Amino acid sequence: MNKIVMAITGASGMPYALTLVQELISLDIELHLVVSSAAYKVLQLESPGYEATLSLVENIYRQDDLGAPMASGSFQHGGMVVCPCSMASLAAIAQGLGSNLIHRAADVTLKENRRLVLVPRETPLNRVHLQNMLAARDAGAVILPPCPGFYNKPQEMQDLIRHIAARIMDSLGIENSVSRRWEGG
C-alpha cells in the first residue's frame, strides 16, 4: 500500500525524520504525518528551516487530533513509523496507552497487525527503556535505533542519515535505493 503514517516526537534526531519525510515524498508515498508539540520545539533547535520539508506533506495532524483518520483501524495504510521516538512515547506505545494521536495510531497499527517501526533516540539506555522496547517488540513493533553502518563509506553526515532512512523504509517494506547496500566483502 502506498500510504504510510509517520509520527515525529520530541526526541533528538530531527535530521532522521526530515530526511525520511523527503525520501517518502520522493517515492510518491501518501504520507500522513503527526507532529507532537515537543517535536516542534526540537525541530526549531536541531533543524532550522524545517518548515520547507514539512510543507511538502499534505496531511499533517496535531497530537491532540484524536478524530484523525489513523485513530481508527478502518483507515488502511501500509505501516507506521515513529521517528524519532521519545522514551515517553515508547513507554506509552509499549503499554497500549492511547492518550494522544501518536500513541493511539501506534496502538491501532499493532492491533490491526500492520508494521510499526519505532526509532528510539536515547543513550545510554536504562532498564525501563529496555523493558519498554522489549514490550513493544513483543507486541509486534520493530525497534530500529538509529545506528548507522559504515560499510557504505559515508563521506558526510547526510550519508549516515540516509542510511537510517533506508533501513526504516526497508522495515516498512518500501523498495528504495536511498543508501548503498552491503555487497559482501
Results as ranks from 00 to 15, higher is better:
Ala39Arg: 00
Glu51Pro: 11
Gln76Pro: 04
Leu118Asp: 06
Arg114Lys: 15
Ala92Lys: 10
Val34Phe: 08
Leu24Tyr: 11
Val21Trp: 05
Lys111Asn: 10
Leu33Ile: 07
Ser179Met: 10
Leu134Val: 03
Met14Thr: 02
His77Lys: 04
His163Asn: 13
Pro124Ile: 02
Thr123Val: 13
Gly13Cys: 03
Ile4Cys: 10
Leu118Phe: 13
Ser74Gln: 04
Ile8Glu: 00
Gly149His: 13
Ala52Phe: 09
Arg137Asp: 00
Asp107His: 14
Ile93Leu: 15
Pro48Val: 09
Val142Gly: 02
Leu54Cys: 07
Ile29His: 05
Asn113Cys: 05
Pro148Glu: 01
Ala52Asn: 11
Asp65Gln: 13
Asn152Asp: 11
Arg121Lys: 14
Pro48Ser: 12
Gly10Ser: 00
Pro154Val: 04
Glu122Asn: 00
Asn100Phe: 03
Ile29Val: 10
Ala139Cys: 11
Glu183Gln: 14
Ala94Val: 11
Ala7Asp: 05
Val142Ala: 07
Thr19Ala: 12
Pro146Val: 02
Ala139Asp: 01
Leu45Asn: 15
Ala136Gly: 08
Arg114Pro: 14
Leu90Pro: 06
Gly149Thr: 09
Tyr151Gln: 00
Ser179Val: 06
Val128Tyr: 13
Ser37Trp: 10
Tyr61Pro: 07
Asn2Met: 02
Ile174Thr: 01
Gly10Phe: 01
Ile93Met: 14
Val35Gly: 08
Ile4Tyr: 09
Leu18Phe: 08
Thr19Lys: 10
Val57Asn: 10
Ala52Met: 10
Val119Arg: 15
Ser12Met: 05
Gly98Arg: 03
Gly96Gln: 02
Phe150Val: 05
Leu56Ile: 03
Asp64Lys: 09
Val117Glu: 12
Ala165Pro: 01
Asn152Gln: 14
Leu33Asp: 07
Arg62Ser: 11
Thr123Asn: 09
Asn176Phe: 03
Glu46Pro: 09
Met157Asn: 12
Gly73Ser: 00
His163Gln: 04
Leu27Pro: 00
Val142Lys: 04
Thr109Pro: 14
Asn2Gln: 05
Gln95Ala: 13
Leu118Val: 06
Gly98Asn: 09
His77Ala: 08
Lys41Gly: 12
Val21Ser: 01
Arg114Cys: 07
Lys41Val: 14
